[in-house]
Amino acid sequence: MSHGLISTELYYKIFATLMALTTLTVIAAFIDMGALNDIIAMGIACTKALLVILFFMHVRYNSPVTWIFVSAGFVMLLIMLMLGMNDYVSRSWDAPPSPWTAPPSAAPASH
């Protein structure tokens, strides 16, 4: 049975799309596309998440307040990624500290 504005047919279509994208994720995992590997995997994952949020969670048909709260979640995610990557990206800017070595033993004081 459909839920309010969304027809059962649309639910099935979204479900089929999600399954297709899952299959695509698996296929993509077996093909080495170099630097595009992560981008494609994340792109598919984001598309799937978007479909779930918009249709299965009914956000598309909800009030602007709901949109604001959903957006806030994404803003938080962006903050976490940006400030987190702030650490990972800049870790290599300094040369690693040289390994610790024992200080030379103190020479006897000469008088």
Binding site: M76, I79, L83, N86, D87, Y88, S90, R91, W93, D94
Partner: peptide, 22 residues
């Protein structure tokens, strides 16, 4: 409050530049 968490990690091998931002 969501922008400052890295101040718990100044000596946890977090990059010094990230530490500065936090």
């Amino acid at each position: 409050g969501f922008l400052v968490w890295g101040h718990h990690m100044f000596v946890s091998s977090q990059s010094i530049y990230a530490g500065l931002v936090f």
